[in-house]
């Protein structure tokens, strides 16, 4: 199997969480003998080649960070320039986001079915997972640990060509957290997470409180 893989994040490759997820995913594909070509929507210079590759490839995987419950504006801008295919091409998606619960990604996932149809292609499923916001801020070892699970999904995709299996559905984790977990995580939000965000801001050279209101 050969797949065209599009990183749909507007973030430059170096800072993109999707990019790190794809590194692991592709490792799994490669283990199973699949090949792939990767391109990045954040780099407009690649758009001509990407359009050509979209026309030529029969297996396409678009990896997307959720942006306000749907796909990012920049990815829409690129997709608007494609010519619909109607030649049996299959598109599968990796949809990932910041919030941790599966339910947070379902509205975005629903759109991907509509999108596939509009592009004249066949829907090959979506691998859905949240809780990825922190990847950008983690040290290399933690990133490896967090993204490692995607390698197995890469194997699965290479073998099945889609994300319809039970294994892929389970990959999402809980749709919502049970009450006791929400209580605990709620406390973490007010304590550990808050100080973590403040530290990250300080490291970035932020000189204002994070609740600063510049326009009032």
């Amino acid at each position: 199997m050969h797949a065209l893989i599009i990183n749909g994040s507007p973030r430059v490759k170096k800072f993109s969480n999707t990019d790190k997820i794809l590194d692991k995913f592709e490792a799994g594909m490669a283990e199973k003998g699949a090949t792939f070509t990767r391109c990045e929507v954040s780099d407009r210079k690649q758009w001509d080649d990407m359009r050509k590759a979209f026309g030529e490839n029969k297996n396409i995987l678009i990896a997307i960070p959720l942006y306000v419950e749907n796909i990012p504006g920049l990815l829409i801008e690129f997709l608007e320039t494609l010519t619909p295919k109607n030649d049996g091409t299959e598109i599968a998606f990796i949809l990932q986001g910041g919030f941790a619960e599966g339910v947070q990604l379902r509205c975005g996932e629903a759109y991907l079915k509509i999108l596939t149809e509009k592009l004249g292609c066949k829907y090959a499923g979506t691998l859905v997972k949240g809780d990825n916001f922190g990847i950008r801020f983690m040290d290399e070892k933690t990133v490896q640990k967090i993204t490692g699970a995607y390698t197995d999904m890469g194997r699965e995709y290479a073998e099945c060509g889609n994300f319809f299996s039970e294994k892929c559905a389970k990959f999402t984790g809980p749709e919502i957290f049970p009450v006791h977990v929400r209580l605990l995580v709620g406390i973490i939000f007010k304590t550990l997470a808050k100080s973590g965000f403040k530290k990250a801001a300080k490291d970035w050279g932020c000189t204002k409180p994070l609740n600063y209101r510049p326009y009032k």
Partner: peptide
């Protein structure tokens, strides 16, 4: 478009 830099949260809040 938004470039996802997160500056509005962590570098220049708001």
């Amino acid at each position: 478009h938004c470039i996802g830099c997160n500056y509005c949260w962590l570098k220049t809040p708001g």
